[in-house]
Design a protein around this nucleic acid. Structure first.
Lengths: 229, 229
DNA sequence: GATTGTGAATCCATTCACAGCG
DNA sequence: CGCTGTGAATGGATTCACAATC
């Protein structure tokens, strides 16, 4: 790590936060929101960990990654910690999100309150079906995919969700990348090929069920043997 | 390896397959389906890994976990490998799935073709809203939550999806567990408290966006410094 | 010759346990 | 004394690299 680089930084070290930690920060943030609403002003690692569903050692290690200062003997300041995590996650910047593919799932996501609540606004919808293009959905016009480049540029969109059928997904991804999108949340069950500077996260609902199926299978076999889990 | 007969056997060791491997098996299975449709009868670890979006060493290690026999110098038999993975995942058994919470997201999932395609049938819908209870959705009646215990028992449902608001989710989970459900896919943004024999997987869409937001943030900061990845 | 299966090496994540501090 | 922050220990997962096998 040859970063001969000063620390004139807000909060903490920039990019060397482990992925596993990053994936949990949103959970901590959410728990902190709940605690703040309940009126708590400080919280111990033990209590926050319980609220987020992890153990306290892991929580403390995670928070130490972002240089957060709790107070020994007391705990963490709820408001300050919220602010700090929001900063690290980049949630203080506003993020406009595009959604491509206005089928059942796309419609549900377009109307999902959970996004707006947590700092994301879907600000453009795209599809290719002539039945859907031109209709309104959750206050937004469904546009034709052809308009994607101009709209993405105009609205400075850097994050997109793909909820198209799998066969269309790669083409859509190519188009998004060319338009300047650098983060993609892919709901289509297929592998996307994108340049190295583009982050893709995949959510595959059938895969989740299949993983659960494995555990069901395992449990039902386990009946024969007296192994407790 | 005390396996006498490679094919008449229930493949391999039961429960000591690493979680990380289990999470990838569905991806391999999906890739194999695609390859099978394309008419391939054998596939190398290199090609299958590419189709599944992983590297070949990982793929081979994963497959070796389930005792799978490829053929050195040739590759894997597509049909046999599909069968083997399906067995391990317990997909040869039929799984009936309950869905609780017929809001936007629930409606979308109830109509999601991707489940049926891959071996899961949603066979019961529940809600508490009097506006929704009694309506039909995707050929299924939306039932009141009160009917959950009897229906879950009658249909032998062991897997459920929760797509309710977060405040209702714990109560629903309790009810599911009491009715005999042992695997839950939770879309509500909250931590569920369940007995140790129940598996919960959580899908939080806002969390996915927040993780992407972090990477956006990181990338935009990275513009200042010329650090290579 | 090609490709699998796998020990060994490496990397990353979690947990432990306690020193350090309020 | 209580609780955080963290080095050290442990445990998994990934990658390497090559011997075994077809």
């Amino acid at each position: 790590m040859p970063t001969g680089d000063p620390r004139a930084n807000p909060t903490a070290d920039p990019r060397d936060i482990p992925d596993a930690t990053v994936a949990r920060l949103p959970e901590y943030l959410h728990a902190l929101h709940t605690l703040a609403e309940a009126g708590l002003s400080t919280v111990s690692s033990e209590a926050l960990a319980a609220a987020a569903g992890v153990n306290s050692a892991k929580l403390r290690k995670d928070l130490s990654q972002l240089g957060s200062y709790g107070i020994r003997g007391v705990g963490y300041d709820v408001v300050m910690l919220k602010q700090q995590i929001s900063d690290v996650l980049g949630l203080t910047r506003h993020h406009s999100v595009a959604l491509v593919g206005v089928g059942h799932l796309g419609q549900a996501l377009a109307g999902y309150a959970g996004f707006a609540n947590r700092g994301f606004a879907i600000s453009a919808l795209f599809d290719i079906s002539s039945e859907r293009v031109g209709t309104m959905l959750g206050g937004l016009l469904v546009r034709h995919l052809d308009e994607l480049p101009t709209v993405v540029a105009a609205e400075r969109i850097s994050i997109a969700m793909i909820t198209t059928p799998p066969l269309a997904a790669q083409r859509v991804a190519d188009s998004l990348v060319k338009a300047g999108v650098t983060s993609i949340l892919n709901f289509a069950p297929c592998v996307l090929d994108v340049p190295g500077n583009v982050d893709v996260r995949k959510v595959d609902l059938a895969v989740e069920l299949q993983i659960l199926s494995f555990h069901e299978h395992r449990k039902s076999q386990g009946l024969n043997e007296k192994e407790a889990v």
